[in-house]
Nucleic acid binder design. Sequence first.
DNA 1: GCAGAAAATGATATATTATAACATTTCAAC
DNA 2: GTTGAAATGTTATAATATATCATTTTCTGC
Lengths: 158, 158
Amino acid sequence: MSDLFPKKGHDHDRCVHSAIAQAEKVCDDASARFTDMRRKVFTLIWQSHKAVTAYELLDALTSEGQRVQPPTVYRALEFLTDLGLVHRIESLNAYFGCDRPDCDHLGQYFICTECGRVAEEVNEDMSNAVRKAAGNVGFAIQATTVEIKGLCHDCATH
Amino acid sequence: MSDLFPKKGHDHDRCVHSAIAQAEKVCDDASARFTDMRRKVFTLIWQSHKAVTAYELLDALTSEGQRVQPPTVYRALEFLTDLGLVHRIESLNAYFGCDRPDCDHLGQYFICTECGRVAEEVNEDMSNAVRKAAGNVGFAIQATTVEIKGLCHDCATH
DNA sequence: GCAGAAAATGATATATTATAACATTTCAAC
DNA sequence: GTTGAAATGTTATAATATATCATTTTCTGC
Ligand SMILES: [Zn+2]
Ligand SMILES: [Zn+2]
Ligand SMILES: [Zn+2]
Ligand SMILES: [Zn+2]
């Protein structure tokens, strides 16, 4: 059985640093600015492997000092999602950092209802099944939302 | 190419009557009450093949006479979704009538961004791909959200 | 039929998520 | 340094959803 959710006790600083490095590259390639605010929001999203709501981000930013307003966070989120650095999890109204922002993909999200962690997979069998089903009915895909809730292996076995 | 979205000019009264008849049966089998309010909400949802928001339902119910409050609509929606008569479309924050409420299923939803219509499919290839991907990583599925946005055949070709 | 319990709805308030509109600041290009 | 575009700040409000308690309706057992 392959891993998908990160191991407990993994070196999470590596996750964060790698994500930031990739984000810098993606922004650079797109001639987009990875500003302080965007970096703060992005880093907060990567604090855990859970999805984070806009207002959790607001609270975190506010407790750091002066009051941050909703549009500030939503703008940063829009920027990050447009560039594919962050994905919105529709069934949670929350946001999740992508670990492969360099390539275009139709991701699928496994959401553990016990520990709250989210894992993104890019599974060609699933993507192909979706594409084929769409093709069968003459539907031209623009975007897909595939979110699977349940128990991750750790939570199912402990 | 098989049909999925209903034809223009189809006999929609048949859709509605069939849906209501099925709902009555499902409620009866579950010893649940298909009250006036639940029937009204359900019928409003079936007015079109689009997904309907809670507040659109509220407005429709209110214009029928006295003011209806949000909890009234949300309660009816909870009842209907719990019984599988209606599905929530997460990416739209909206609700859509199921045309096969009698059988358990993991549905997939095609959402046309042009005409707004939604079509539910129960595609075993997709469902199996999801189950297999979950199995591969030891994930125990509780619920799935598969929503596909794009252009329906009518809108793509006209 | 009637009492009591359970289910459903009404009513009020409030929580959560998200955007519109305009002002100010920052920053890169010239 | 000036200037124009991008980003952020500020204020207000829209859209979606739930908590809580009161009242009404329906069901069950007698
Ligand atoms: Zn990590
Ligand atoms: Zn878990
Ligand atoms: Zn119809
Ligand atoms: Zn269409």
